[in-house]
């Protein structure tokens, strides 16, 4: 949990210092991709706490989910249907699920949840 927070803070500082910005036309895709990778990071933290962490699963989820989410948003834009809602609901819900598990794992380290 701490690692992820530190990482996001460090990354945010780097991002603000870097002179690059996105083309605003892609902002929706990037936003959905951010949501997907945020979910992957939460999932990684959870599996790490559960000692079930798998590098392959984590990396494939991190990149695969982001790309799929951005792709869904793009396809939705082409078709005129807001498909990115699928990504928002799925990953938004999963972030809370993961966070709930993380909370329980951290709160009851010695109990049956572990």
């Amino acid at each position: 949990m701490i690692f992820a927070l530190i990482g996001i803070l460090v990354g945010a500082v780097i991002g603000f210092l870097l002179p690059y910005t996105y083309n605003t036309a892609y902002s929706l895709y990037i936003t959905v991709a951010i949501l997907a990778s945020l979910d992957s990071v939460f999932g990684g933290i959870r599996s790490n706490l559960e000692n079930k962490f798998d590098i392959k699963v984590f990396l494939s989820g991190f990149f695969g989910n982001s790309i799929l989410a951005a792709f869904l948003a793009y396809i939705g834009d082409r078709l005129g249907v807001p498909l990115y809602f699928a990504a928002i609901f799925t990953f938004g819900g999963r972030i809370f699920d993961n966070f709930a598990s993380i909370r329980r794992l951290l709160l009851y380290k010695t109990s049956q949840y572990k």
């Binding site: 992820a4 870097l18 910005t21 902002s27 936003t31 790490n48 590098i55």
Partner: peptide, 24 residues
């Protein structure tokens, strides 16, 4: 351990994404 390190690296990437997004 490897997992924590990977999470650190990927969250740095995520942070860069988010802050670049906020900048625009």
């Amino acid at each position: 351990d490897k997992g924590k390190f990977l999470i650190l690296v990927s969250s740095i990437g995520l942070g860069i994404l988010i802050s670049t997004m906020m900048k625009s």
